[in-house]
Design a protein around this nucleic acid. Structure first.
Lengths: 210, 210
DNA sequence: CAAAAAGTGGGTTGTCCAATCCAGTTCAGG
DNA sequence: CCTGAACTGGATTGGACAACCCACTTTTTG
């Protein structure tokens, strides 16, 4: 599921070159908004970073809000893509632990800056742009779906007791991850993130060994 | 620990009346920033909502950033104050469950709008205002301290096994709460919040009954 | 109770930035 | 190869808003 906008703001179809330019704008916007937030990122910054000129941003996007929505979809693909291999193996404790380590290490490399590309962006625009809020919520549901798939496999295999609900557990796991990322961002320290994920994985482990 | 700014932007001491006006400005700013975010809240909006005139905001605050920092401290007091009774009883499972119910019910009443007054605000300004980020982090540590106190009581009492670290568990609990609030805000649904808190409380419960 | 400090009301300024426009150039399909 | 559509580059506009200023009134204090 890639970001297939594939048309200009006035609805015309795009050529190959056009699509590339559009993607370059979204990628530049995503990076700048991740680093500085939506409000602090001007269209001029994006234009310069993408290496396109003046009217181009408006050629491809209706307005700034439309670009923000495209960025959210782009980040959803980026985040799920980056951890795709890990997400495919969340049906064993070693797989879950490896995923945890991957996320913590990634945050450490970033100096805990930026938080979650989806969650932080969504939170910033949630109360002023309903469409963007919904886009962020949809992105989180995709993510949760991948986690749930792993837990459901464990459940079907009988590793998780019949009484447990994989969906609830997946929701809780993603929420814990989001909160850990937020606290890590604010404290510039991975410890809250580690404590949060470890507690949730220990919870799953304890369900298994029941 | 109240917000004792108690001086104007130029460092002069405030009279009683001045302090009241200053508080009215902070309270108005807090409400508007909670509802619409920092970027969407103008000083003119705040001025009008607080019922003060033109230069007054600048009389009491150096600039908008200083006001944001005051709002963060104000919200920290407000949040901890509102759940103070519950925070005093986090040393039993019924106490923890009651706290959970209180938070979920509060979110339901708000229609899941706004998220966490501290977390959402902190996330918005984290990458553009280091002082505000630190203020938010400090607020979260105060909150975490209250949770930790309850868990430490359980630990000392022997309810929690010796091997468990109340601090780690408190950190994880707050992170889970933050993530649940964020997801509830984005999805406009308390289910992620409930799933997250329930999973974490079940974790604590399972540690007790070991 | 006088004089200085604290607080008020509103007007002004300068900057930033989203959004629009248009003249010129490149590209892609028939 | 040529014609219209896709794309480029830069200039412009209009509005919003943070920050500042000053004349005036009220409050506090020595």
């Amino acid at each position: 599921m890639a970001v297939k906008q594939a048309e200009a703001s006035d609805g015309r179809r795009l050529t190959r070159r056009g699509r590339e330019t559009q993607q370059r704008i979204v990628a530049a916007a995503a990076e700048l908004m991740f680093e500085n937030g939506v409000a602090e990122t001007t269209l001029e910054d994006i234009r310069a970073a993408a290496g396109v000129s003046g009217s181009q941003v408006y050629h491809y996007f209706e307005d700034k809000q439309a670009l923000v929505r495209a960025v959210i979809d782009y980040q959803a693909d980026a985040v799920l893509g980056a951890q795709s291999d890990h997400l495919d193996h969340l049906d064993t404790m070693p797989g879950l632990r490896a995923w945890r380590d991957f996320i913590v290490e990634h945050q450490r490399r970033l100096g805990c800056r930026g938080g979650c590309p989806i969650g932080a962006l969504g939170a910033e625009v949630a109360e002023t742009d309903a469409a963007a809020r919904v886009a962020a919520a949809r992105a989180l549901r995709r993510w949760e779906g991948r986690i749930r798939a792993g837990l459901q496999t464990m459940h079907a295999r009988g590793d998780l007791p019949a009484g447990t609900d994989p969906e609830q557990l997946a929701l809780a796991t993603l929420a814990t991850l989001q909160g850990g990322l937020l606290m890590a961002q604010l404290e510039r320290d991975t410890r809250p993130l580690e404590a949060a994920l470890d507690a949730m994985l220990d919870r799953i482990q304890s369900l298994i060994s029941t």
